[in-house]
């Protein structure tokens, strides 16, 4: 398990552990969606994955170029394209762009409802992966087990998340039939919200 603020430097390039595992989690989730659609026998599986790749690329592009939307004057120096990315509302904007593309294709190509279930399952898998590998320090704990921070025990929040998300995913596999679609999607949303609510007391 890695400390979130750790960075690895190769010459002038610096890679943060958090970013690396965020990318790996995204790839794992993407792979899980692909496998899930294959397992369900979805006919348009290849086409759906192609369009989802476009949606991911669009999301990354929105995140990268968001500073120039908020502050167009930055474009007066083209080197700024290398320097700046993200900023206020960049993540929601990137997610909205990716989601919008999926919605458009969903209606235009008349995709099956399976994709929502696959997407939510993929999100859960990504969250499990990320939380297994990246430490998240919670509030000071009254219990003896947890991470040690400055000699004090704090809640190992990422472990809690990984365990609860894992149980949620297991529940989807065990309690629902393969053919179930809407029920499973609703279950995924409810379980993500429930996990968030259960975890609230342990955050700083």
């Amino acid at each position: 398990m890695f400390h979130p603020l750790t960075t690895w430097s190769i010459g002038p390039l610096t890679l943060s552990v958090e970013l690396l595992f965020l990318l790996l989690a995204l790839m794992t989730g993407f792979f899980a969606v692909s496998r899930y659609l294959k397992w369900k026998g979805t006919e348009q599986q290849e086409e759906i994955m192609d369009k989802m790749t476009i949606a991911v690329i669009a999301g990354v592009a929105v995140f990268k170029f968001w500073p120039f939307v908020l502050q167009p004057s930055l474009l007066s120096d083209l080197r700024n394209i290398i320097y700046f990315s993200g900023g206020p509302w960049a993540v929601p904007a990137a997610m909205a762009a990716a989601f919008l593309i999926i919605i458009i294709y969903f209606f235009r190509k008349q995709w099956p409802a399976d994709i929502w279930e696959a997407l939510l399952g993929g999100v859960l898998i990504s969250l499990i992966f990320f939380n297994i590998f990246v430490r998240q320090y919670g509030a000071v704990s009254p219990f003896n087990t947890g991470f040690s921070l400055e000699g004090v025990t704090v809640h190992p929040v990422n472990f809690y998340y990984a365990w609860l998300y894992f149980l949620s995913f297991l529940g989807a596999l065990v309690f629902f039939k393969k053919e179930a679609v809407t029920g499973k999607s609703v279950y995924f949303i409810i379980s993500i919200v429930a996990v968030y609510l259960l975890m609230m007391p342990f955050h700083v």
């Binding site: 000071v140 009254p142 400055e150 004090v152 809640h155 259960l198 007391p201 700083v204």
Partner: peptide
């Protein structure tokens, strides 16, 4: 987790601020 959350709330009532960390 519900029980731990309740214990946490009781514990935090007598504590001061968060730990120092970046």
């Amino acid at each position: 987790f519900l029980w731990m959350g309740q214990e946490q709330q009781l514990f935090e009532e007598g504590r001061e601020g968060p730990l120092s960390y970046a």
